[in-house]
Deep mutational scan, measured.
Amino acid sequence: MASQGTKRSYEQMETDGERQNATEIRASVGKMIGGIGRFYIQMCTELKLSDYEGRLIQNSLTIERMVLSAFDERRNKYLEEHPSAGKDPKKTGGPIYRRVNGKWMRELILYDKEEIRRIWRQANNGDDATAGLTHMMIWHSNLNDATYQRTRALVRTGMDPRMCSLMQGSTLPRRSGAAGAAVKGVGTMVMELVRMIKRGINDRNFWRGENGRKTRIAYERMCNILKGKFQTAAQKAMMDQVRESRNPGNAEFEDLTFLARSALILRGSVAHKSCLPACVYGPAVASGYDFEREGYSLVGIDPFRLLQNSQVYSLIRPNENPAHKSQLVWMACHSAAFEDLRVLSFIKGTKVLPRGKLSTRGVQIASNENMETMESSTLELRSRYWAIRTRSGGNTNQQRASAGQISIQPTFSVQRNLPFDRTTIMAAFNGNTEGRTSDMRTEIIRMMESARPEDVSFQGRGVFELSDEKAASPIVPSFDMSNEGSYFFGDNAEEYDN
């Protein structure tokens, strides 16, 4: 783990906690998980779902989305002020799938948001429990990260689609708070800032007046979040320049895209947490497990152990491969979309394939898809080993990566060399080191050039047997250095459309 220093740990961010010791953190995270579980059980009762239907990941996603929508204050306010045809701002819903006479049927349900809020609060001892809501947002974000390569979004903001390893959390809503900021990748933060800068260039009043003052505060806050992700002084200094700019424009845009590229080699610290679907927490609570009393951590053995003992089902389209669908969801559960496939294969105990080789589309089923041909199958979400999630980018030494994705962002704290394609990355730096950030740029390029592919990161860190909950005997895996390590390699994943 990167030293926490003055930073709060993510469990504290996750639970809005002030400084807590490890036991208190485990208890408050457990409380959050228990609340999600209780809410899910109650919703299944309301909807009269069978046990099997309640364990269907598509039903879980609909129920999670309903509660997130019920608590989305800004959108609710907007919907009330701008009524649109056929949208009731006070209601929320989605597809629920039921097994009827041996076939899967889709039923569109509609609930009062007020009623959903009441059920959620009741499951969370009367609190709004925003930490639990954020947790579900991060699960949705991790699922998107594993399912889609955001080529269009990258290109629109002047970045290269091969930089997708920097895009963790790119679909997280803005209201996801400190826990959300911690899991956002460098590219995601750059993209958010670039969008602001572009608006400022096109709209003279963007930075002016009372609204402009708020915009400015948001801009500086985002700059500080991004600065905190960088691990070298030169990158941090460049972020200070971007933040202090009187009138952010093209120079800042250039600096930010430069920094994003540099992060492929001088990786930023991005938190990883295993956020599971509500249909995993519900049955665990129903079986009598007391998360608050037992304590829970999002970055240790607990999620692995929970998945070892969970039964989750998914709808499967006619030509999809259930094992591939399982891999997709497994990666999402562990926030591992940008991790090295060699490491993932070792931990999972079966070969993890790149996205383009998977015969599976996303987990969600569109409303126009034919239910007649839908089957369902068990998702295999178990693992051979477990490993500690990392909050750091690993040290800054790398190795060759593949054509589709030119770097990785480690999820697990496991000893290995970190793949990246130096030639491709360095070719993108057209040696432009003039301007006010020239000395920093020169320094950053120097550090990137001296990074050695064969150097090892996370020295001495290994994986653990599932029986080793105290992480007492690390097993340090050895990897084939020459092997392909990137998930979005030469990829044809669908595009994420909101």
Rank of each mutant, 00 (worst) to 15 (best):
T6V: 00
A22L: 09
Y40Q: 10
T45K: 05
K48P: 13
L56V: 10
L56A: 12
T62Y: 02
I63W: 06
M66E: 08
M66F: 07
F71A: 07
R75S: 12
E81F: 11
K87A: 01
K91S: 10
T92V: 08
G93A: 09
G93V: 09
D112G: 12
E114W: 07
E115F: 03
G126Q: 14
G126C: 07
A129Q: 08
A131M: 15
G132A: 13
M137Y: 06
R152M: 05
S176H: 04
A182W: 09
V186D: 11
M189C: 12
M189V: 14
L193A: 06
R195Y: 07
I201T: 11
K214R: 12
T215I: 08
T215V: 10
I217M: 14
Y219D: 12
C223V: 05
N224K: 13
N224M: 10
I225V: 10
A233W: 05
A234E: 08
A237S: 14
Q241H: 08
E244R: 00
G249K: 07
E254P: 11
I265L: 13
I265R: 02
A271I: 00
K273C: 03
C279S: 15
P283Q: 15
V285G: 14
G288P: 04
G288L: 05
D290I: 08
E292T: 13
E292P: 09
L306T: 15
L307C: 11
Y313W: 12
L315R: 00
I316L: 14
A332N: 04
H334K: 00
S335I: 02
S335K: 00
A337C: 04
F338I: 07
V343Q: 08
G349P: 04
M374F: 12
W386S: 15
T390Y: 13
S392A: 13
S392P: 00
G393F: 01
Q398Y: 02
S407Y: 02
S413V: 14
F420G: 00
T424A: 14
I425V: 14
N430I: 08
N432Y: 13
G435P: 03
D439F: 01
R446I: 10
V456E: 05
F458L: 08
F464W: 06
A472Q: 12
F479I: 15
D480R: 00
Y487L: 02
E495P: 04
